[in-house]
Write a protein that binds this DNA or RNA. Structure first.
Lengths: 337, 337
DNA sequence: TTGTAGGCGTTATCAA
DNA sequence: TTGATAACGCCTACAA
């Protein structure tokens, strides 16, 4: 049986009210009493019951994150780092992190969010992999559950977010490739419904335009953010006689698949075909050849998101509602660096 | 304001007792009443408050997992898949998964576990990356919080676990390499305090013995389960004139670092030096050359662990307390396959 | 500055 | 088969 606030009060011959207030740092408690209370409470190993507190305060002291998973096998390295960031920042503020998993846009995804919302299990959620039309945004806004998003469209519903500027990032990357002499640059995209896709494709197109190169739709192949998807899409691009001399993957995982396709086509990455990605997962640096990419500070972004979310939950209506982070172009050998 | 059990009772002109019992499926409720209760409750959108239930039942309906992280950057692909498995299985049983992160053996790790334990935030925890002497095992056993472990020593305290048989796995891998003609086989280990390390090293040694090759301690280099660690350790092994003709990484992440070192030494993986790992993370398959490894069904292992844990929590003292899973040798080009 | 008491939404005990 | 009622542990008006 854990020690409760009553036990502490009894021991001190004080009321539970006083103990409670002393522990919570109210200023209407005599300094001497507060010290005694704090000392004895700690010594007795008192820890408030979160269930009771939650019931009373109607706050779960927890936030949630639902990982977008694609069966049967899911191991996007992005998310382990992301979750570590969420967890660390939440813990530092004495919040817990609940994690669930669901395939995007499936019924299971709705069920997962609803489960938390309806049972008041979390005080807020972090959204990742936002879609251009995302039911989650409308749903959460409507029911009034605090949430923040990693990326997302700027037009529609406004919500607090951290945006890693894929548009600008891709312009830089394009400039880099064009400077290297590439004119036919392929792009293996994400599913079109994703916000990052729209943003990064825009950057890709802007990069072409800036160099006066006309956009050629046949150089864009659709992937699915997996290695396999990147591989297949790149194969399509490479089997053509006039294949592109450079291919950008919308993320690193995709780009790794692209590299595989290039090699299997009997071409050398970095010499015959330049390849680049987005994220800078650890795999990128250790690839052969190392992958040029746009680095995204995933861990820090995650912490930042939690900071923003907790500010909302705790009622500090922070003015900052959109943080834009510039990805860093990391040039490696895959683009002949 | 969410609808409570009182609202449902009032609407039905029943007592909250009856409603509660009807919803929980007790058999002392008239069939007709139960149907009405269930229908109306659903129609009113009633969802029990988890906080209240938790307070009353003294069960959190949640399990916890603390990711072992190494700052400043953490992105072990193993854990995103692992967490997906934990989350899916937990959700299917209507449990939530709490995730935290802490560097192994640091003070923060103790703090993280204690936080959950003392405030009764979780009904049980899943342990990964067990150490030979692991304070967590003793701590949890002592306070009586249910837990299960992925791997771990067999001798000491008994606890329910899933073991991926690294010993047998490494024997197979060794047999494969020896059959390929390798006699000088290096091993880049994990930190010695880890249980998987002891187990896999034992398999390595047994493999040597089976072939009548004497154990040479200088062929074992210490890594740290990171790419960088594998890289540096392998460098040490490769700078010697009589370098090994094959090097095993204690896990895939390590092996990827080994491959990098081999290439940088001007040698070709698979031809000059064979490399193999353990886990079969997606990176392994897509590596250049693809990495021979021992496949571990991470997602399924995670689900299994949760199943075992929930059985304990729910009082079904399942007889099965140790599940042994055989890893599958996947031969790829990195060992000249 | 401290204490009394009511209630958060459930479940469980005991009567009816 | 159903209904009062008492906890569970905490917070917070309000009273002293």
């Amino acid at each position: 049986m854990p020690v409760t606030i009553r036990d502490v009060a009894r021991r001190l011959k004080l009321s539970i009210t006083t103990v409670s207030r002393a522990l919570d740092g109210y200023d209407d408690v005599a300094e001497g009493t507060r010290e005694r209370v704090v000392r004895v409470a700690r010594q007795m190993g008192y820890v408030p019951s979160r269930a009771a507190r939650e019931l009373r305060r109607k706050r779960a002291d927890a936030i949630g994150f639902i990982m977008p998973t694609l069966k049967p096998r899911f191991a996007d390295p992005f998310y382990s780092e992301f979750i570590a960031g969420l967890a660390d920042e939440a813990a530092s503020k004495n919040f817990d992190l609940l994690v669930s998993a669901a395939p995007p846009q499936a019924e299971a995804e709705q069920a997962a969010y609803r489960r938390w919302v309806q049972s008041h299990r979390v005080d807020g959620v972090v959204l990742a992999r936002l879609r251009l039309k995302d039911w989650r945004v409308h749903y959460l806004a409507e029911i009034g559950l605090p949430f923040v998003g990693l990326g997302g469209v700027r037009r529609s519903v406004k919500y607090p977010r951290v945006v890693v500027d894929g548009d600008t990032g891709l312009r830089q990357l394009m400039a880099h490739l064009i400077e290297r002499g590439h004119r036919r640059i392929g792009f293996v995209s994400a599913p079109p419904e994703l916000a990052i896709q729209a943003e990064r494709l825009a950057g890709y197109r802007a990069g072409l335009e800036a160099a006066g190169i006309p956009f050629d739709n046949s150089l864009v192949a659709v992937g699915n953010l997996t290695n396999q998807g990147g591989y297949q899409a790149a194969q399509g691009l490479l089997t053509r006689p006039d294949h592109p001399s450079a291919i950008i993957g919308v993320d690193d995982v995709t780009a790794m698949g692209v590299m595989r396709a290039v090699r299997e086509a009997g071409l050398e990455v970095g010499r015959d075909v330049a390849v680049a990605g987005f994220d800078d997962i650890s795999e990128a640096e250790n690839a052969q050849p190392p992958l040029t990419t746009l680095r995204q500070p995933v861990y820090d972004v995650a912490r930042r998101l939690v900071t923003m979310l907790l500010a909302i939950i705790c009622g500090e209506t922070a003015a900052v509602s959109e943080v834009v982070i510039q990805p860093e172009l990391v040039v490696r050998a895959s683009t002949g660096g």
